[in-house]
Structures are given as C-alpha cells and as structure tokens.
Amino acid sequence: MEQRSSLQRFNQVLLGFLLFFGLLYLGSSFLVPIAIGGLFAMLLVPVCQRLERWKLSRSVAALICVFAVVIILIGLISVLITQIFALANDLPELGKMLTAKLDQARTFATDKFDLSREKQNEYVRNQLEGATQMAGSYIRSFLLSTSSFLLNFVVVITYTLLFLIYRRRLRNFILKLVRDREGSYAQNIVNKITGVASSYISGVFLVVVILAAVNTAGLMIIGIEHALFFGLLAGLLNIIPYIGSIAGSLIPVIFALLTKEALWYPIGVAIFFLVVQQIESYILTPNITGSKIKLSAMATLMVLLLGGMIWGVAGMILFVPYLGILKVVFDNIEKLQPYGYILGNEEEKENPKPIIAKPASEG
C-alpha cells in the first residue's frame, strides 16, 4: 500500500512537470513578453521607489522609468544598427581577405597533405552550400521576427509599466493566498524575495554594462576595427551564461584573424577576453550578484538548455535569472530549503537558517 502511494505521488509530480513545461512551450508567445516585462519591472523597482519618495505618484514614477528605458533601448539599437551598416560596408574587403586566407590554407593543404585543388574546391563548395542554406533560413526567420518586433516591444513595455503600477496589488494578492496559513510571516517572505530579486536583476544588467564598456575599450586599445560593435555585442551576449561569453569572444577573434596580417592580433583578443571572463567570474559577478544568489554550474547549464528547448534564445536568456529568483523563494521557506541547496553552489559546511520559520506551536 505504501509503495502504491509513493508511485502515485511520483506519477502526480511527473504529470505536473509535463503539464507545466507543456504550457510554457505552447504559451510562449503569450508568456515571453510577460517574463521580459517582469524582469524590466524588477530592474526598475528601486528607481521607481526613489521617485515616489520625491512625492511623485506611482503612475508618474512608473511612466518616467519606462520612458527612460525606452530611450536607452532605442539609443542602444540605433548604435548597433549603425555599427552593423558600417561593418556591412567593409564586407567586400573582408571577402577579399577571406579569399586570400583560403588560398593560403589551400596551398598549405596541398603541400602538407597532398590534397589536390579539385578535391579542396569540391569540399569548400559543399560546405558553402550548406552554410548558404543555413544562412538563408536564419535570414528568413530574422525577417519574420523583425515584422513582429515592434508589436512585441510595445507589449513588453506595456507589461513593464503595468507591473510597476500594480506591484503592490500583485504583492497583496500573494499575501491573500497564504495569509490564513502563514500569518504575518508571509509579509516578511515577500519583502525579502522582492528585494533580493530586484537587486539581483539590477546586478546582472550592471555587469553587462561594465563588460560592454571594458570590451569596447580593450578592443580599441588592441586596434580592432568596429570595436564598439563587438564590445556591445559581447557584453549583451554575456546575459546568456557560458554560451554567450564564448560566442561574444569568438566573433572578434575570428574578425581579427581575417582582417589582420599579424597573428598577435587574434591572440591578443583571445587573451584579453580570457582575462575579462576571469575578472567577470571571480570579481564582478560574485561581488555584484553572487552575494545575493549563488547558482551552481550544474543548475545553470541544465536550465540554460531547458530554456533553449522551450523558448529558444529567449528561454536561454530568461530562464537563468528566473531560476535565481526561484532559489530566493526556496532559501527563505524552511520546507523548500533543500531545493534551494541543490540549486546553489554554497559550501557544504554552510547551512543557512531560514529567515522565516513557523513557531513550533503552530505545528
């Protein structure tokens, strides 16, 4: 009887997971803008609260915050588009450099591996056909997504504004759900979670801004053209853990390899990004966000891949910070602390006590 009950609980948990992730997958077009708006709202909560302390109404403060974000995003997008057009103007020259590099590689292959030019040309042609087809599919999907970008942008901004205006109502809704069972302890839990989540999201964006500035300055010093574009791109891609940092550093290394005759340029770019990544991993992130939330590499990688499967690139960006917020919830509720422990990377000797615990008399 006990084994049957355990099997039933396992089946219920498994069914719950399937339903939850199935709803996330099927409702992605509805849920992704809400998730992005929620992150922006958590980022802007401290600024909105400061404006409210200056005797501004909540609606006015929220409007000012959202308007500032829109201006910043428009400026960032404008800079990126300008840099992309500048890079596009250099494509003919890059094509000539690429041809020269390929000729050098073919000569090396002929001398060292005794491969005829015909076999090399056939191999390159096959690879180019596959790359062209892949690029065509990406371009088509990009054009389709661009057509709905403005609509999604308006929706996200609207959600951000509404979350800021109605954040007290949303908090009271959660309190009403648990008030009969938890009493006044729920208030402390919600305050702790919202405060830590807001500071965590703010820290993530601060790290991105710092990395974008450092990357741009470093590439300019090394002498890489379009340093602003590559620096901003690497900083923004750093939002995606592991994969983003690798892609953000690999692109300028390849660009330096194609555009510079001296080999020390790509090597210098690679060393520079390696140093920056070590500084980000051991200094910036631990001091800015790691003091609040510590996610293990195992949990981060698993949720990164899961987010990519369910929501694509948006999931890879969104699932990690929301997992961090979920860990805050687990860490501050006694019964859920084991789940917070398995998600974190705290030392095993550390056994933090929950800040909220029911009195023993309440059972």
Rank of each mutant, 00 (worst) to 15 (best):
F149A: 09
G218I: 09
L76W: 07
S57N: 06
E93M: 13
F142R: 03
V208C: 06
L177P: 01
P266H: 00
Q104G: 13
T289V: 10
V32Q: 02
Q277G: 13
L19M: 12
L151C: 05
I310M: 05
E225Y: 04
I254H: 03
K358T: 11
V156P: 01
L43H: 01
L162A: 11
L306R: 02
G290Q: 08
L151V: 15
L284I: 07
K335G: 08
F17S: 10
L56G: 00
Y185C: 04
A217G: 12
T285W: 01
F273C: 04
V209H: 05
T107A: 12
L63G: 09
N345A: 15
A109R: 14
S291H: 11
L336W: 05
V155A: 08
P252V: 03
Q133K: 13
I81C: 06
L206K: 12
I243H: 03
G75D: 05
V155F: 06
S137I: 10
V155H: 02
L228W: 10
F330Y: 08
F17K: 07
V303G: 01
S137D: 13
Y242Q: 14
L257C: 07
M309R: 11
F205G: 06
Q3T: 15
S6I: 15
V209R: 07
E118K: 01
L326D: 05
A109M: 15
F10W: 11
L102C: 12
R58D: 04
P321C: 06
L143I: 11
F163G: 00
N121F: 06
D331Q: 03
I222G: 02
A360E: 15
K349S: 11
P352Y: 00
F85H: 10
A197V: 07
Q104K: 13
I254A: 12
S296P: 04
V32P: 00
N172L: 11
N89G: 09
P359N: 14
A62R: 02
T160E: 05
F272T: 11
V70P: 00
I356R: 04
L211N: 13
S141Q: 15
G203E: 04
E129S: 12
L206F: 08
G37M: 06
L164C: 00
Q337V: 05
I72E: 08
L232Y: 09
Q133V: 11
I293T: 03
M97G: 14
Y159C: 10
I189C: 02
D111F: 10
P266E: 02
F149C: 02
Y242T: 15
T259E: 07
L263A: 14
Y138V: 13
D180K: 14
E362H: 10
V178R: 01
S137C: 08
I174V: 11
T158E: 08
K327I: 08
A41M: 02
S59G: 14
L44T: 02
F10T: 14
Y185I: 14
P286A: 09
K112D: 12
Q49D: 09
G308M: 01
I267E: 02
T99I: 13
P359Y: 13
K112C: 10
A62P: 01
I165H: 05
I71F: 04
F149I: 06
G268A: 03
T132K: 13
G344L: 08
M309G: 06
V204N: 10
V253R: 00
L44K: 00
Q127K: 11
T285R: 13
V66N: 02
L150D: 05
N188W: 03
S29F: 00
F229R: 01
V156T: 12
L24C: 15
A227S: 15
G38V: 03
L26D: 07
L206R: 10
L39P: 00
D111H: 13
